[in-house]
Write a protein that binds this DNA or RNA. Structure first.
Lengths: 156, 156
DNA sequence: GACTTTATGACCATCTTTGACCTTTAATTA
DNA sequence: TAATTAAAGGTCAAAGATGGTCATAAAGTC
């Protein structure tokens, strides 16, 4: 965790966890100031660590009184999360996006750490073959079917 | 044992021995610096001394804050695990044989029921494509990599 | 001397960090 | 109130920081 992006991620997740409403509001400039970094670094963290695939939504507003709002999307209670996931997966899934989705499933405790590692192994380029439309299609296919499996009643 | 590769190997194995989680994290550049050698020498050591056949997995990350993670596999004490795996799986694995193997792993309590179902889903024809030498090769590849993953000491 | 193992360096891939420039919105002013 | 200014946040490309690969040289071994 030596790098800045990771530290900012940890910090944001910590206060997000403490917030009771499932979201936090903050200012980009202030946060950048606290970490002594370029403001755009905050955007980098938001894009890579708080993406939709990872289960976060970021709203913002510019101008005076501008802000960032980071919202945690939990589907722990969502009964048809496979449906949502299906939308996220589509017919093409890159390794990066697949890993992000697994990250989210793990954070929501829908899969265990071991299951995440097993699935990462399988969805890795080294298993499926170099990244191209065909393997990305295969990856999407596998991911969709896995979600159906883990949402089976008898496996809860 | 006077050569560099051997000395690096001994060093890494010593700290790996002391680690309680079965893995260590370090930086390639730093290690190379400590041994006053080319960074690629570290890769040489990892490839020749910390290969899968010898019971290790190596993960890495590039860019700022990058690192190497060397993970010990459980079968470290079982020296012919790779041999066994070759015999069981080989370069071609039909769906039927894969399912039988999963069943055995489940009976031996090496994987959970849920893990078995997930893996069945993935190794099914409907995921990988109709049975042919190519998909059977892919299935074998996946199976092999999954077995290695669940042998990771940090996942026990 | 031929073969194998070890070591290096040039070049590549990926992830992070920064800075210059842009857009949007609120506050102020004429 | 329309125009202007100030105060946010957004984008993107380039530079920086790692680790990976591969051909080749150097060193050992038989």
């Amino acid at each position: 965790m030596g790098n800045l992006a990771d530290r900012i991620e940890v910090y944001l997740k910590r206060i997000l966890e403490q917030s009771k409403d499932g979201y936090i509001i903050l200012q980009r400039g202030v946060l950048a100031e606290e970490f002594s970094c370029a403001p755009s670094q905050i955007n980098y963290v938001l894009n890579t660590r708080f993406s939709i695939d990872r289960g976060y939504l970021v709203e913002s507003r510019r101008g005076g009184g501008g802000y960032l709002r980071i919202i945690r999307l939990e589907f722990g209670s969502e009964p048809d999360f496979p449906q949502l996931m299906k939308k996220l997966i589509g017919n093409n899934l890159s390794q990066t996006r697949a890993f992000n989705l697994l990250h989210r499933l793990r954070e929501d405790e829908i899969i265990t750490r071991r299951e995440e590692e097993i699935l990462r192994t399988i969805l890795h380029r080294d298993s499926l073959g170099e990244e191209n439309p065909q393997t990305n299609g295969l990856r999407a296919n596998i991911m969709r079917r896995v979600l159906l499996t883990i949402s089976r009643e008898d496996l809860q």
